[in-house]
Protein backbone atom coordinates (compact mmCIF):
# COMPACT_ATOMS: atom_id res chain seq x y z
CA UNK A 1 0.00 0.00 0.00
CA UNK A 2 1.34 3.40 -0.85
CA UNK A 3 0.39 6.55 0.91
CA UNK A 4 -3.05 7.80 0.04
CA UNK A 5 -2.77 10.78 -2.30
CA UNK A 6 -4.48 13.43 -0.32
CA UNK A 7 -5.73 16.21 -2.58
CA UNK A 8 -8.59 14.83 -4.57
CA UNK A 9 -8.96 15.87 -8.18
CA UNK A 10 -11.71 18.42 -8.13
CA UNK A 11 -14.15 16.37 -10.11
CA UNK A 12 -13.32 12.98 -8.67
CA UNK A 13 -16.18 10.93 -7.38
CA UNK A 14 -15.39 9.80 -3.89
CA UNK A 15 -14.63 6.11 -3.85
CA UNK A 16 -16.65 3.99 -1.52
CA UNK A 17 -13.91 2.16 0.23
CA UNK A 18 -12.68 2.07 3.70
CA UNK A 19 -10.01 4.62 4.44
CA UNK A 20 -10.43 8.31 4.82
CA UNK A 21 -8.57 11.55 4.94
CA UNK A 22 -9.74 14.39 7.10
CA UNK A 23 -10.90 17.64 5.66
CA UNK A 24 -10.36 19.25 8.99
CA UNK A 25 -12.72 22.08 9.78
CA UNK A 26 -11.63 24.08 6.80
CA UNK A 27 -8.23 24.41 8.36
CA UNK A 28 -6.29 21.68 6.64
CA UNK A 29 -4.49 23.20 3.68
CA UNK A 30 -5.37 20.19 1.59
CA UNK A 31 -8.99 21.24 1.50
CA UNK A 32 -8.19 24.63 0.07
CA UNK A 33 -7.22 23.02 -3.19
CA UNK A 34 -9.96 20.48 -3.12
CA UNK A 35 -12.81 22.47 -1.79
CA UNK A 36 -15.41 20.56 -3.74
CA UNK A 37 -14.78 17.35 -1.94
CA UNK A 38 -17.71 17.33 0.44
CA UNK A 39 -20.09 18.62 -2.19
CA UNK A 40 -19.48 15.97 -4.80
CA UNK A 41 -19.37 13.23 -2.27
CA UNK A 42 -22.13 14.06 0.09
CA UNK A 43 -19.63 12.35 2.29
CA UNK A 44 -19.03 14.90 5.00
CA UNK A 45 -19.04 13.00 8.20
CA UNK A 46 -20.14 15.73 10.48
CA UNK A 47 -21.73 19.14 10.02
CA UNK A 48 -19.55 20.49 12.78
CA UNK A 49 -16.91 20.96 10.13
CA UNK A 50 -18.51 24.35 9.70
CA UNK A 51 -17.44 25.51 13.13
CA UNK A 52 -14.59 27.97 12.70
CA UNK A 53 -11.30 26.47 13.76
CA UNK A 54 -8.71 28.69 15.32
CA UNK A 55 -6.19 27.24 12.94
CA UNK A 56 -2.56 28.12 13.16
CA UNK A 57 -3.08 31.76 14.14
CA UNK A 58 -2.86 30.81 17.76
CA UNK A 59 -5.40 30.50 20.49
CA UNK A 60 -7.87 33.03 21.67
CA UNK A 61 -8.46 34.90 18.43
CA UNK A 62 -11.74 33.17 17.77
CA UNK A 63 -13.97 31.56 20.30
CA UNK A 64 -13.10 27.89 20.25
CA UNK A 65 -15.95 25.75 21.46
CA UNK A 66 -15.12 22.76 23.56
CA UNK A 67 -16.34 19.36 22.43
CA UNK A 68 -18.70 19.46 25.38
CA UNK A 69 -20.25 22.72 24.15
CA UNK A 70 -20.57 21.37 20.64
CA UNK A 71 -22.36 18.32 21.98
CA UNK A 72 -24.75 20.51 23.95
CA UNK A 73 -25.45 22.64 20.90
CA UNK A 74 -26.03 19.63 18.71
CA UNK A 75 -28.44 18.23 21.28
CA UNK A 76 -30.29 21.56 21.37
CA UNK A 77 -30.64 21.52 17.60
CA UNK A 78 -31.92 17.95 17.74
CA UNK A 79 -34.46 18.82 20.45
CA UNK A 80 -35.73 21.76 18.44
CA UNK A 81 -36.12 19.53 15.40
CA UNK A 82 -37.90 16.92 17.51
CA UNK A 83 -40.43 19.45 18.75
CA UNK A 84 -41.10 20.91 15.33
CA UNK A 85 -41.22 17.56 13.53
CA UNK A 86 -41.98 14.49 15.61
CA UNK A 87 -40.60 11.24 14.19
CA UNK A 88 -44.18 10.34 13.32
CA UNK A 89 -46.87 13.01 13.59
CA UNK A 90 -50.60 12.99 14.23
CA UNK A 91 -52.57 12.42 11.05
CA UNK A 92 -54.01 15.47 9.33
CA UNK A 93 -56.69 16.10 6.74
CA UNK A 94 -55.29 15.77 3.26
CA UNK A 95 -56.41 19.31 2.51
CA UNK A 96 -53.73 20.50 4.90
CA UNK A 97 -51.23 19.19 2.40
CA UNK A 98 -52.86 21.37 -0.24
CA UNK A 99 -52.15 24.43 1.91
CA UNK A 100 -48.41 23.74 1.58
CA UNK A 101 -48.77 24.41 -2.13
CA UNK A 102 -51.06 27.42 -1.87
CA UNK A 103 -48.55 29.58 -3.65
CA UNK A 104 -47.06 26.70 -5.52
CA UNK A 105 -47.55 25.07 -8.85
CA UNK A 106 -50.99 24.35 -10.28
CA UNK A 107 -49.88 20.82 -11.07
CA UNK A 108 -49.46 19.99 -7.37
CA UNK A 109 -52.77 21.59 -6.43
CA UNK A 110 -54.69 19.72 -9.06
CA UNK A 111 -53.11 16.42 -8.15
CA UNK A 112 -53.81 16.83 -4.46
CA UNK A 113 -57.39 17.80 -5.28
CA UNK A 114 -57.81 14.62 -7.30
CA UNK A 115 -56.04 12.54 -4.69
CA UNK A 116 -58.51 13.76 -2.08
CA UNK A 117 -61.36 12.07 -3.94
CA UNK A 118 -60.03 8.72 -2.82
CA UNK A 119 -57.82 9.59 0.16
CA UNK A 120 -58.81 11.66 3.13
CA UNK A 121 -55.88 11.83 5.54
CA UNK A 122 -52.12 11.80 5.66
CA UNK A 123 -49.48 11.40 8.37
CA UNK A 124 -46.03 12.92 8.23
CA UNK A 125 -42.87 10.98 8.92
CA UNK A 126 -39.79 13.05 9.80
CA UNK A 127 -37.50 13.79 6.85
CA UNK A 128 -34.39 12.34 8.43
CA UNK A 129 -33.52 9.81 5.75
CA UNK A 130 -35.40 7.09 7.63
CA UNK A 131 -38.88 8.27 6.57
CA UNK A 132 -39.67 5.28 4.37
CA UNK A 133 -38.84 2.64 6.97
CA UNK A 134 -40.61 4.55 9.72
CA UNK A 135 -43.69 5.21 7.61
CA UNK A 136 -43.85 1.58 6.51
CA UNK A 137 -43.51 0.23 10.06
CA UNK A 138 -46.01 2.65 11.53
CA UNK A 139 -48.59 2.14 8.79
CA UNK A 140 -48.32 -1.63 9.15
CA UNK A 141 -48.46 -1.70 12.94
CA UNK A 142 -51.32 0.79 13.01
CA UNK A 143 -53.27 -1.29 10.51
CA UNK A 144 -52.78 -4.39 12.66
CA UNK A 145 -53.78 -2.55 15.83
CA UNK A 146 -56.96 -1.07 14.37
CA UNK A 147 -58.03 -4.54 13.23
CA UNK A 148 -57.10 -6.33 16.43
CA UNK A 149 -60.75 -7.23 17.18
CA UNK A 150 -62.20 -7.51 13.70
CA UNK A 151 -59.27 -9.32 12.07
CA UNK A 152 -57.02 -10.76 14.75
CA UNK A 153 -55.29 -12.88 12.10
CA UNK A 154 -53.48 -9.75 10.85
CA UNK A 155 -51.75 -9.53 14.20
CA UNK A 156 -50.91 -13.23 14.32
CA UNK A 157 -49.54 -12.95 10.82
CA UNK A 158 -47.42 -9.91 11.63
CA UNK A 159 -45.99 -11.51 14.76
CA UNK A 160 -45.10 -14.63 12.78
CA UNK A 161 -43.47 -12.51 10.10
CA UNK A 162 -41.38 -10.48 12.52
CA UNK A 163 -40.36 -13.63 14.40
CA UNK A 164 -39.28 -15.07 11.06
CA UNK A 165 -36.99 -12.11 10.38
CA UNK A 166 -34.59 -13.40 13.02
CA UNK A 167 -33.72 -16.40 10.85
CA UNK A 168 -33.49 -14.19 7.78
CA UNK A 169 -30.97 -11.94 9.51
CA UNK A 170 -28.96 -14.90 10.73
CA UNK A 171 -28.99 -16.36 7.23
CA UNK A 172 -27.58 -13.06 5.97
CA UNK A 173 -24.70 -13.44 8.44
CA UNK A 174 -25.72 -10.69 10.82
CA UNK A 175 -24.47 -11.20 14.35
CA UNK A 176 -27.25 -11.91 16.85
CA UNK A 177 -25.45 -9.70 19.34
CA UNK A 178 -25.61 -6.77 16.96
CA UNK A 179 -29.28 -7.02 16.00
CA UNK A 180 -31.20 -8.70 18.81
CA UNK A 181 -31.98 -5.49 20.71
CA UNK A 182 -33.63 -3.94 17.64
CA UNK A 183 -35.43 -7.18 16.89
CA UNK A 184 -36.67 -7.43 20.47
CA UNK A 185 -37.98 -3.85 20.56
CA UNK A 186 -39.77 -4.36 17.24
CA UNK A 187 -41.36 -7.63 18.35
CA UNK A 188 -42.39 -6.22 21.73
CA UNK A 189 -43.98 -3.16 20.15
CA UNK A 190 -45.91 -5.46 17.84
CA UNK A 191 -46.97 -7.80 20.64
CA UNK A 192 -48.13 -4.86 22.74
CA UNK A 193 -50.61 -3.89 20.02
CA UNK A 194 -53.07 -6.35 21.56
CA UNK A 195 -53.74 -3.85 24.31
CA UNK A 196 -52.37 -0.59 22.87
CA UNK A 197 -54.36 2.51 22.08
CA UNK A 198 -53.66 4.66 19.02
CA UNK A 199 -52.17 7.22 21.36
CA UNK A 200 -49.75 4.67 22.83
CA UNK A 201 -48.65 3.44 19.43
CA UNK A 202 -47.94 7.01 18.33
CA UNK A 203 -46.03 7.69 21.54
CA UNK A 204 -43.90 4.60 20.96
CA UNK A 205 -43.06 5.74 17.43
CA UNK A 206 -42.20 9.21 18.71
CA UNK A 207 -39.75 7.80 21.23
CA UNK A 208 -36.22 7.95 19.81
CA UNK A 209 -35.03 4.64 21.16
CA UNK A 210 -38.09 2.58 20.25
CA UNK A 211 -38.71 4.27 16.92
CA UNK A 212 -35.11 4.13 15.75
CA UNK A 213 -34.75 0.52 16.87
CA UNK A 214 -37.73 -0.40 14.71
CA UNK A 215 -36.28 1.57 11.78
CA UNK A 216 -32.97 -0.21 12.26
CA UNK A 217 -34.63 -3.59 12.36
CA UNK A 218 -36.52 -2.94 9.13
CA UNK A 219 -33.31 -1.70 7.53
CA UNK A 220 -31.60 -4.94 8.47
CA UNK A 221 -34.53 -6.96 7.17
CA UNK A 222 -34.34 -5.19 3.80
CA UNK A 223 -30.59 -5.67 3.74
CA UNK A 224 -30.82 -9.34 4.69
CA UNK A 225 -33.39 -9.96 1.99
CA UNK A 226 -31.19 -8.36 -0.67
CA UNK A 227 -28.13 -10.26 0.52
CA UNK A 228 -29.94 -13.58 0.49
CA UNK A 229 -31.37 -12.88 -2.99
CA UNK A 230 -28.25 -11.50 -4.61
CA UNK A 231 -28.82 -13.26 -7.91
CA UNK A 232 -32.05 -11.36 -8.42
CA UNK A 233 -30.90 -7.92 -7.34
CA UNK A 234 -27.16 -7.63 -7.94
CA UNK A 235 -27.76 -6.78 -11.63
CA UNK A 236 -29.36 -3.50 -10.51
CA UNK A 237 -26.26 -2.30 -8.71
CA UNK A 238 -23.75 0.13 -10.10
CA UNK A 239 -20.99 -1.54 -12.02
CA UNK A 240 -18.37 -3.05 -9.75
CA UNK A 241 -20.37 -2.66 -6.56
CA UNK A 242 -21.06 -5.76 -4.51
CA UNK A 243 -24.35 -6.33 -2.72
CA UNK A 244 -22.54 -6.26 0.63
CA UNK A 245 -21.07 -2.84 -0.17
CA UNK A 246 -24.40 -1.52 -1.36
CA UNK A 247 -26.20 -2.76 1.73
CA UNK A 248 -23.67 -1.50 4.22
CA UNK A 249 -23.61 1.97 2.64
CA UNK A 250 -27.21 2.50 1.65
CA UNK A 251 -29.39 0.15 3.64
CA UNK A 252 -27.79 -0.60 7.00
CA UNK A 253 -26.57 2.91 7.84
CA UNK A 254 -29.17 5.06 9.62
CA UNK A 255 -30.32 8.12 7.74
CA UNK A 256 -29.57 6.78 4.26
CA UNK A 257 -32.51 7.37 1.97
CA UNK A 258 -34.23 4.47 0.34
CA UNK A 259 -34.90 3.76 -3.27
CA UNK A 260 -37.18 1.30 -5.07
CA UNK A 261 -34.93 -1.68 -4.38
CA UNK A 262 -35.42 -1.28 -0.62
CA UNK A 263 -39.18 -1.03 -1.06
CA UNK A 264 -39.21 -4.20 -3.10
CA UNK A 265 -37.04 -5.99 -0.57
CA UNK A 266 -39.13 -5.00 2.41
CA UNK A 267 -42.38 -5.87 0.65
CA UNK A 268 -41.15 -9.32 -0.25
CA UNK A 269 -39.50 -9.98 3.10
CA UNK A 270 -42.62 -9.07 5.07
CA UNK A 271 -45.32 -10.11 2.57
CA UNK A 272 -46.90 -6.70 3.10
CA UNK A 273 -47.83 -4.85 -0.08
CA UNK A 274 -47.38 -1.13 -0.58
CA UNK A 275 -48.83 1.37 -3.00
CA UNK A 276 -46.84 4.52 -3.48
CA UNK A 277 -48.54 7.67 -4.71
CA UNK A 278 -46.00 9.73 -6.65
CA UNK A 279 -46.75 13.41 -6.24
CA UNK A 280 -44.59 15.69 -8.33
CA UNK A 281 -44.81 18.87 -10.33
CA UNK A 282 -45.10 17.16 -13.68
CA UNK A 283 -47.59 19.28 -15.62
CA UNK A 284 -48.49 16.56 -18.07
CA UNK A 285 -50.81 14.73 -15.71
CA UNK A 286 -53.58 15.81 -13.36
CA UNK A 287 -53.59 12.53 -11.50
CA UNK A 288 -51.12 11.17 -9.03
CA UNK A 289 -49.46 8.01 -10.27
CA UNK A 290 -49.67 4.93 -8.09
CA UNK A 291 -46.96 2.31 -8.14
CA UNK A 292 -47.67 -1.02 -6.45
CA UNK A 293 -45.02 -3.08 -4.65
CA UNK A 294 -46.26 -6.63 -4.30
CA UNK A 295 -45.09 -9.66 -2.37
CA UNK A 296 -44.65 -13.00 -4.14
CA UNK A 297 -47.80 -14.47 -2.65
CA UNK A 298 -51.29 -12.97 -2.80
CA UNK A 299 -51.44 -10.10 -0.30
CA UNK A 300 -53.51 -10.89 2.79
CA UNK A 301 -54.52 -7.30 3.47
CA UNK A 302 -55.02 -4.14 1.41
CA UNK A 303 -51.75 -2.35 0.61
CA UNK A 304 -50.22 0.24 2.90
CA UNK A 305 -50.41 3.53 1.05
CA UNK A 306 -47.44 5.89 1.09
CA UNK A 307 -47.19 9.36 -0.37
CA UNK A 308 -43.93 10.07 -2.16
CA UNK A 309 -42.68 13.52 -2.94
CA UNK A 310 -39.18 13.74 -4.36
CA UNK A 311 -36.89 12.60 -1.56
CA UNK A 312 -39.57 11.96 1.04
CA UNK A 313 -42.22 9.44 2.13
CA UNK A 314 -45.32 10.04 4.28
CA UNK A 315 -48.36 7.88 5.05
CA UNK A 316 -51.66 8.21 3.18
CA UNK A 317 -55.08 6.95 4.24
CA UNK A 318 -57.39 5.58 1.55
CA UNK A 319 -61.09 6.17 2.08
CA UNK A 320 -62.05 2.69 0.92
CA UNK A 321 -59.87 1.12 3.62
CA UNK A 322 -62.34 2.48 6.19
CA UNK A 323 -59.82 2.67 9.03
CA UNK A 324 -61.67 3.65 12.19
CA UNK A 325 -59.71 5.20 15.02
CA UNK A 326 -56.84 6.85 13.17
CA UNK A 327 -55.50 9.72 15.25
Amino acid sequence: MTVTPVPLPTNAPIPTAAATTPVGAGAVPVTAGAGVVPVTAGAVANPVGAVPASGAQGQGQEAQLTDEQILTQMQAIKDEEANAHPLVDHSVDLLELAQEYENGSEAFKKKIQNLSDTHDRMRRSRGDGNCFYRAFAFAWFERVMLAIKSKPELHANAVRTIEGTKDLLLAAQFELLAFEDFYQVTLETLQNLVHSTSEELLTAFQNDEISNSIVMHFRLVASAFLKTHQDDYAPFLEFGQTMDEFCSMHVEAMGRESEEMMLIALTKATQVSIEVAYLNGNQAADEVNFLPFLPDTAPYMPPLVLLYRPGHYDILYRKSHCLEGVI
Binding site: T4, L8, N46
Partner: peptide, 13 residues
Protein backbone atom coordinates in the same frame (compact mmCIF):
# COMPACT_ATOMS: atom_id res chain seq x y z
CA UNK B 1 -12.43 12.87 15.74
CA UNK B 2 -16.17 12.78 15.03
CA UNK B 3 -15.96 16.57 14.79
CA UNK B 4 -13.70 16.31 11.77
CA UNK B 5 -15.32 16.36 8.36
CA UNK B 6 -13.78 13.31 6.71
CA UNK B 7 -13.42 12.80 2.99
CA UNK B 8 -13.16 9.21 1.97
CA UNK B 9 -10.35 7.72 -0.02
CA UNK B 10 -9.90 4.35 -1.46
CA UNK B 11 -7.46 2.33 0.58
CA UNK B 12 -6.74 -0.21 -2.11
CA UNK B 13 -3.68 1.80 -3.06
Amino acid sequence: PKHTAWAFHDDTV
